[in-house]
Simulated scan of single mutants.
Amino acid sequence: MRKEVLLAAMMLALVVAAPGGARAACVVGQLTVCMPAITTGAKPSGACCANLRAQQACFCQYAKDPSLGAYIRSPHARETLVTCGLAVPHS
């Protein structure tokens, strides 16, 4: 639980600090619904998959962020993408 709270706080800080254009398209806070899948390997919910699809263009940006990269590149994140039918980005 502590990890999820920390990640949610980092996501909120990233969204607030993002420039106007990035804030409109890349809202990392929308991925909080995916935290159980990304951190524990639980099956992603429909809402998680929908939000991943909506944020797919932002994955590389998130992976380059020092506070988010480890989550985005984690094995469970890859499993979540595959389960949702999304391609795993290669950077």
Rank of each mutant, 00 (worst) to 15 (best):
R73C: 06
A25I: 14
Q30T: 00
Q61P: 01
A13N: 04
A42C: 01
R53L: 08
D65W: 08
A54M: 10
L86E: 00
A8E: 15
A22N: 06
A8Y: 00
A22E: 11
V88G: 03
R2K: 03
C58Y: 01
S67T: 01
V82R: 08
A8K: 03
C34Q: 07
S45R: 07
A9P: 01
V5L: 11
T39S: 12
A18N: 00
M11H: 00
S74F: 09
C49V: 12
V27C: 04
K3Y: 02
S45I: 02
A50F: 02
K43N: 13
M1S: 09
V28E: 12
C58V: 04
A17E: 01
A63Y: 06
L12W: 07
D65C: 06
A13R: 04
F59L: 12
V15K: 06
M11W: 00
M1C: 11
M10C: 01
A42W: 05
A54S: 13
G41H: 03
A77H: 15
A13G: 04
P89W: 11
P75H: 13
P89M: 14
A8S: 10
A70E: 09
L52D: 02
A18K: 04
Q56V: 15
T40H: 07
G46A: 12
A54N: 00
C34E: 01
P75I: 07
R78Q: 12
P44Q: 09
L86N: 01
A47Y: 07
C48F: 10
L52M: 14
C60A: 03
A54G: 00
L31M: 13
L14A: 12
L52Q: 06
T40A: 04
G20Y: 04
V33D: 09
A77D: 15
V88Q: 05
Q61R: 11
S45W: 05
R23C: 14
C34H: 06
L14I: 00
G41C: 13
R73T: 13
M10T: 01
N51D: 09
P44Y: 05
A17T: 02
A57V: 02
C49P: 12
M10G: 14
Q56W: 14
I38P: 05
L14W: 14
A22K: 03
A24Y: 02
A70G: 04
Q55G: 03
L6N: 09
C84Y: 11
T40R: 15
I38T: 11
P19F: 15
L6R: 10
A37C: 05
A37K: 05
T83N: 02
Q55C: 12
A63Q: 14
C60G: 10
R53F: 08
A54R: 07
L86V: 13
S74I: 09
K43V: 10
S91W: 11
M1I: 00
Y62Q: 13
